[in-house]
């Protein structure tokens, strides 16, 4: 569902580091492993954790 071509353009909105795709868990994870972002129905939710429920 997730289009991996998007990773060429995207970065972590917190650290501005590159993201890698955890296919098993359906998450995008920042290169330093500090920030994780779920992919929901194929849509990456690239929001800092504390902003998720705003």
């Amino acid at each position: 569902m997730f289009n991996t071509d998007m990773l060429v353009f995207l970065i972590c909105p917190v650290s501005h580091l590159a993201l890698y795709y955890d296919t098993e868990r359906q998450y995008l994870i920042s290169a330093d492993g500090q920030n994780e972002y779920p992919i929901v129905n194929g849509i990456p939710v690239l929001m800092p954790n504390n902003a998720m429920e705003e």
């Binding site: 289009n3 995207l10 909105p13 194929g42 849509i43 990456p44 690239l46 929001m47």
Partner: peptide, 30 residues
């Protein structure tokens, strides 16, 4: 997410590809 899901449906109905992101546009992840 409600808006994005609707957007996703509309592109899917037309069998077209689009890159969707849920984000805060004041923290653009590009």
């Amino acid at each position: 997410m409600g808006m994005l899901s609707k957007c996703q449906q509309k592109f899917a109905q037309r069998e077209q590809q689009v890159n969707l992101l849920r984000c805060d546009i004041t923290k653009l992840p590009f």
